[in-house]
Simulated scan of single mutants.
Amino acid sequence: MPTRRSAGILLHRAGPAGPEVLIGHMGGPFWARKDDGGWSIPKGELEPDEEPLAVALREFAEELGSPVPAQDFTPLGEARVTSGKVLTVWAAEGDLDADAAVSNTFTLEWPPRSGRLQEFPEIDRAAWFDLDAARTKLVKGQVVFLDRLAASL
């Protein structure tokens, strides 16, 4: 079975106390009550013949409702995340109104075995965090990209 792969964009900007990153809180009932460890870099899964950067750009737009406000992308490499997927991330410097983020949705049977299908946003809110706060908010497998971003700045 081939390894599942995802790609994402870690948007950053200069903040009052150093770099800030834009991340999204994962939507749906599984993450509704989880804050620390419940946020993610905007990303999405690749199909076998897709170009990773193209997927990262598409998924950013789908999950935040806006294209990436940048033209230059710095590769932050890959990492195997907790789910077993290999995640490839690029950094981009830009600014975006996190409060205006509007995500696409997914369908899930909820409550389980109820036969009732509901729509949930992939990301239910987005926010800017300094790197220290983002380390607490992000799911553990993605924190390595904050270290790589800090090293590249």
Rank of each mutant, 00 (worst) to 15 (best):
M1W: 00
M1D: 04
R4Y: 09
R4Q: 11
G8L: 02
G8K: 02
G8R: 02
H12M: 01
H12V: 03
A14V: 12
G15Q: 04
P16G: 12
P16Y: 07
A17I: 10
L22N: 00
M26G: 03
G27D: 01
G27I: 05
K34V: 14
D35W: 02
D36C: 02
G37C: 02
W39I: 00
P42L: 01
P42W: 01
K43H: 14
K43G: 01
G44C: 03
L46H: 10
E47Q: 15
P48E: 09
D49A: 12
E50Q: 15
P52K: 05
A54T: 09
A54Y: 03
L57M: 00
R58H: 13
R58V: 02
E63F: 11
L64N: 06
G65T: 11
S66M: 11
S66P: 01
P67H: 05
V68A: 01
P69V: 05
A70W: 02
Q71I: 09
D72Y: 11
D72E: 15
D72F: 11
T74Q: 14
P75C: 08
E78Y: 04
A79R: 14
R80Y: 11
R80I: 15
R80T: 15
R80A: 15
G84S: 13
K85R: 15
T88D: 07
T88L: 02
T88H: 10
T88E: 15
V89K: 06
W90R: 00
A92F: 03
A92R: 08
G94M: 01
D95Y: 08
D97Q: 10
A98Y: 05
D99F: 06
A101K: 08
V102G: 06
S103C: 06
N104E: 15
T107P: 04
T107E: 14
L108V: 10
L108K: 12
P111V: 07
R113M: 12
R113C: 09
R116W: 04
E119Y: 06
P121W: 08
I123M: 15
R125K: 13
R125N: 03
A126R: 03
A126G: 11
F129V: 05
F129A: 12
L131V: 08
A133T: 11
V139A: 14
K140G: 12
V143N: 08
F145E: 09
L146T: 10
L149Y: 10
L149P: 04
L153K: 13
